[in-house]
Design a protein around this nucleic acid. Structure first.
Lengths: 253, 253
DNA sequence: GCTGCCGGTTGATCTGGATCAAATATAAGT
DNA sequence: ACTTATATTTGATCCAGATCAACCGGCAGC
């Protein structure tokens, strides 16, 4: 038993109640007693490595997954054989909620760097949410939040130009890292330019050129995967757009 | 009391258990007894008319809404003053789930034609789902489904060209109408070309041109708002794409 | 019926960002 | 260090679809 403790890394074994992410994660707003009950059903697996899958498109749905450390991307195959990156997931973020409906995963989840992941068997969770109203509410909130984020992306893909998209992406990363106690202006990208472009509906070349341009304009510094945002407010101004977006007709219907 | 019955339209007063939509809607899969309990909390308002709002962006979140008859569009303001149409909602579809998280509506919902709407106070619903596990499951499924639909849209906006987008839109409408017992190949559009374009991330002119082209190619017949799909399988082939989508690099990451 | 307006169609032009092409930088082996 | 595979950058060109412009048809109000 002592042996087990030695082997397993501290960051993996830590219970929800001791986890620094609990305020961002499922336990948010639960009384300690209920956190304990949640803790009982969470499985903490050994760390996964770059390229490992949490699940693949088509897999039977059994569990939700929460990133504890590291990062994960989710992506869906497009019919022609390409793929659409659906999201990049940071610690505290929940993955797999889109699979509840069909009881099967419609997308795949791949680990971008060495990562610790919590697994939450959904049937167990469902039992629990029946008896813990605040946990049920939290689940509704998390599902709803995911919908909200998706609609933000729809707006981004439907109405924003390349520049605005990349600025929005950088700011989103910045803000999410900040919430996790990391620097909002100095971080490493765990995903490739390719993946960024795919996610934003842009060609790699466009992403690369924009990085260069943003750097020339003094908005940021780019060195390989290392990003420093030098002017957050200028980036924010870019996202809102100069009032033209993709310069599309701004119709009121 | 008899008087009341005379005034209120049959389609409005019909209880969930007698509603033809129950198999698509919240009551799906519930035992009759539980449907009864759900029924007790559903408010059935008088019909709304074209242009009426169910709710507006910024409104406090109180209820979910279900289209009983007619159709509704939801849309979010983009920062610059334009708007992004987020969806068109047909009978049996639930609106407002994105608002649970922030306890406020992030988008507006406007009625496209005279419509009957069921209102479900969310706090009451939450109480109910605590005691009816199958209803809770249904809620999870519905929220999850919404996420799945949004990711479908992300793929559409991120990877598909104009032709594929419009074909996908028409087929989606067709299939949803079919599920509701209506013709999958002959229907009326309750939204303008403008709204379709906005929804699909295309200019009005592009939508118009594509309608013309599809008609010339014998895929459909278009007369004003009246649509007849003549070759569903050809449209399906279009959606899948000729293997190129927006002709973007189909990278495996 | 007439008039004005709005939604829709059609044509001509323009352009952001994709595609094509090639060089360069990193990483991974061997 | 040397070869090979992969990721990123940079430059040149192309094109789908946006934008601009003009016109048309249906319908609401008078």
């Amino acid at each position: 038993m002592n042996q087990r403790k030695v082997i397993s890394l501290e960051t993996i074994r830590v219970a929800c109640k001791n986890c620094t992410l609990s305020s961002l994660c499922l336990p948010m707003g639960l009384v300690p007693e209920d956190v304990e009950r949640l803790d009982d059903i969470v499985k903490r697996a050994r760390p996964l490595h770059r390229g490992d899958f949490l699940f693949r498109e088509g897999d039977r749905f059994r569990s939700l997954y929460v990133v504890k450390t590291g990062s994960v991307k989710t992506f869906a195959p497009s019919p022609e054989g390409g793929e659409q990156v659906l999201g990049f997931h940071l610690p505290g973020e929940i993955i797999g909620m889109d699979a509840i409906d069909k009881d099967a995963h419609a997308c795949s989840a791949k680990v971008l760097e060495t990562s610790a992941i919590c697994e939450i068997p959904f049937s167990r969770l469902e039992e629990l949410t029946c008896t813990i109203p605040s946990l049920q509410h939290q689940m509704y909130r998390l599902l709803s939040k995911e919908i909200g984020q998706d609609t933000d992306m729809l707006l981004l893909l439907g109405k924003k130009n390349a520049e605005e998209r990349l600025a929005a992406f950088l700011l989103s990363l910045s803000q999410r890292l900040h919430k996790r106690g990391l620097s909002p202006s100095d971080f490493y990208l765990s995903m490739s330019r390719h993946e960024i472009g795919n996610y934003l509906g842009l060609a790699v070349e466009t992403v690369s050129r924009l990085f260069t341009r943003f750097q020339e304009d003094g908005l940021m510094r780019v060195d390989r995967k290392h990003i420093q945002l030098l002017d957050l407010s200028a980036l924010e101004a870019l996202v809102v757009g100069s009032g033209q977006g993709r310069r599309q007709q701004q119709q009121q219907t």
